[in-house]
Structure formats: C-alpha cells, structure tokens
Nucleic acid binder design. Structure first.
Lengths: 220, 220
DNA sequence: ACTGATGCTTGATTTGCGTCAATAACGCTT
DNA sequence: AAGCGTTATTGACGCAAATCAAGCATCAGT
C-alpha cells in the first residue's frame, strides 16, 4: 500500500511502518470536492489514479487554479502552516486516493530520518516548481506558456511510467487558460496553431506531441 | 543568537540547542552574491538586516526574480530537493546574515518536534505565498499587481516590528517590474499615478502609504 | 565639485491578447 | 437515438501594457 501511495525510496522496514497508517479513500467522481478551503487539515492525500485541480477563490468569487494533481502527487502541503486547508481541491475525473493521517506522519517522521528527508524534498520540489512557474508565466508569451505547460505535463507523465508522447488532458481548455493566465480562446487558437505547425496533433482532449524537440524549443 | 535568527516560538531549551549550531555570516555589500546556482546546499541563511533578491537565469541569460528577502526571512529551502541551490541570491544593500548548517538542523529536528513543525510551517507558508502570488499575477492588472506588492511588503515590515506605513524600497523599479512581470516604465507610471490619486507618497526609494485602505482595495 | 554610469520618468507608437459574438462539436441524460 | 447543456473553435474589434525614444535625477568614484 505504501509503495502505491508514496512511491519513493524507503527501506522495506520503513515501508512497513507507513503501511500501518495509510488508508484507502473512497473514490471520487468528476466534480466531487476532496478538500474545502477552511477545513482542518487531518490528512495528506496521495493520488493513485485520475486527476484533480486545486484552486482558490478571489474576492469576486472567481476560481484561480493553482495546481493540477496527477497520479503519484501528494496533496495538502500548503495547509501545514496552520493546520487549515487554504484551497479547494476537486476531481477532474474518476479518481482514487490514499489518505495519510498528518499526526501519524509527524510521529513517524521523528523515527524515520528517511521519511523526514523525503517530506522536505517533496515540499522543496513543490516550492521550486511553483517559483519556476512564476518566472515562466511572468516573462513568456502565450505560446511559450502553453508549450511549457505541455512539456511539463509530458515529463510528469513520463516520470510516472506513462507515455510522454501521447496523453489525455483531463482538464478543460478553460482550466488550462485559468492556470496559465490566458483566455480560453487563446488556448484554443494556440493549440490549432501548434497543430498547423506540426508540433502536436490534437483530437479533443487527446494530445500527441509529434515534434517534442520543437515543442521544447518553443517553451524556451 | 537563535532568537535573532529564527524568531519563532521555541522553548528556552530549544533555543539553547539551536544556539550551538547557528553562526554569524560575514556581512554582504550591495551586489555581493550569497548563493550561486548549482552550489551544494550546506547552510540555510536567516536575514538579520538588509535585504536580498533571488533569481534564476532563463535560456537567454536574463534574470527572473523569484523572491525578495527581508529581515527574518529564511533562505535556501528550494534547494532541499537535491542538496543543490537552484537560484542565485544577491544582496540589494549591506546585509547581515546567520548561517545554520543543514546537517545540524536535520539532527536537531529529530529531537525537537517543535522545530520540526516550525520548519514545515515555514516551508508550507512559502509554498502558499508562492501559489497565491501566482494567482495574483495571472489574473490581475498592472495596477492591482503593484498595489498588491506594496501591501504585501507593508505587512511583512509590520510583522517584523517595522513601520508598515513608510519604508524604503531597496530594490530598483526594474527589479519590481521583473518580479511582477511588468516593464520598468509601467512600474514608474503606476507609481506616479498612485501618488496623484493620493494613495501613496513616493520620494525616490522611500514610500509612504497615505491611504492604506484604498491601496488594499486596489490590490483586490 | 565634476563626471560618467545607473536608475527613473514621461511621451508616442505598436502589438499581443482579452473581450464579444456566433457557430460547431461533444457527451451526458433520458 | 434524440436533445440539451457544456465545451471548443473561429473571427472582428479594442485596449492594456510592451517597446521605442528621449531627457532628467541620483549616486559613486576620481
């Protein structure tokens, strides 16, 4: 179970200890909310299959998507600051999860230096990714942003042993636009433009990257 | 020393333990580099006085500012992922720092649950701030971004016991623009506009917030 | 105090992307 | 299979902010 939910380098002994505290979560359907902003933070969640989006609401009640979660991702770190979730997390499709009680995690991490390091690594990685994305969005054109988004998705799929050349966009164009700070129309236009240029082949939610090199070049 | 460098709620006993591992760092002058991207990560740094900026370089060698650091801030978390710094950090003015050996920190955090929690909180807070900023930049106008920047700076100064109404911008307008994804000219124009509207009073690097409420309203 | 370099402001022009609008293609639900 | 709501595409137009350009202020160093 622990190997499924926390696919990191831990010793068999460590894995066994973790297994005692990790549990299955009921499957989510599309649009189901996993996390409500303001809720107390009792569990971290690990995505086993499916995908989700996390978002906050701005002062006018508009969604601001801050992350997409794929299988293997951990959800809930941003709430550790004060034990409260700071964002909403919603399933984009049928999704399976594991839940890990925060308390047990804290106790365990006192005993297992490997787990402690792993946690810091994951958080540090998220932090780095988030700051990098910031730089990316600030200084790049719409085409560069979208290209970068696709490249990043592709490599995340690859890391999880899935195809990096062909995958399904479980989020809508509106979601992508929201995430990248662009309008739906711009996303649509650029996708068709990338297709005309022979860089990708788009068929609804299915995307095939036909010229990975050129896409990476466009991402900057 | 520990109280100066890690101004968080720790017991006297914990503070004492920390004191044994925290050291002063030589003072930095304006433009001195504290951290080079690629260097191994041996210390976390705490800012005692002064300020710094962190940035990465894009493929064309252009700076991408990802953070400004004020007194009380901790620097270095993004490198925990693989023990390598991922960005450059440079002093914006004469700056005093403490250094905390990563290794000692790891050992200590095994013994002190309070310290462990504190670390997670700080990282989690950074993560949340970073993701929030992302949302802010993506969906707001130039004026809203700058207003938000000033409000955030103001509240950070307040948290450190400094004036929230009047402070010095140790970074250049170009730095601010880079950070917010705007051009220098836009920063300049909006500052004078805010001044004409009576929201702030600008005199070179010195800024006085004359109508905090209205500024906060502009930030959205 | 002088001088060059760096940082800041202000104006004119251009442009990338958002907005508005209309239509088309999915994919649920019955 | 039919029909409706959601999601995606495509075009016309306008605007916010970038770029280009010029001049001014500030500061460090001789």
């Amino acid at each position: 179970m622990a190997t499924l939910c926390l696919p990191y380098q831990l010793s068999p002994e460590q894995t066994e200890k973790l297994d005692t505290v990790i549990q299955r979560h009921r499957p989510l359907q599309k649009r189901d909310l996993l996390i409500n902003s303001g809720e107390p933070l009792n569990y971290l969640y690990a995505v086993r299959s499916g995908s989700l989006k996390s978002y906050t609401l701005d002062s006018q009640g508009g969604e601001q998507i801050i992350d997409f979660h794929l299988p293997g991702d951990l959800i809930g770190f941003d709430g550790l600051i004060d034990g409260q979730h700071r964002s909403y997390t919603q399933a984009l499709e049928t999704t399976m999860l594991c839940e890990i009680p925060i308390q047990s995690l804290d106790q365990l991490s006192a005993e297992l230096p490997g787990l402690r390091k792993q946690l810091l690594r994951v958080m540090s990685g998220e932090l780095f990714a988030s700051k990098t994305l910031l730089g990316t969005l600030n200084h790049h054109t719409a085409q560069q942003r979208l290209a970068n988004f696709l490249v990043t998705l592709s490599s995340r799929f690859q890391q999880r042993g899935l195809s990096s050349r062909e995958f399904r966009l479980s989020m809508t164009r509106a979601d992508i636009g929201n995430y990248l700070g662009l309008s739906v129309e711009t996303i649509s236009r650029i996708l068709t433009q990338l297709q005309n240029d022979g860089v990708v082949a788009v068929q609804n939610k299915l995307i095939a990257i036909t010229a990975p090199e050129r896409l990476r070049a466009l991402a900057g």
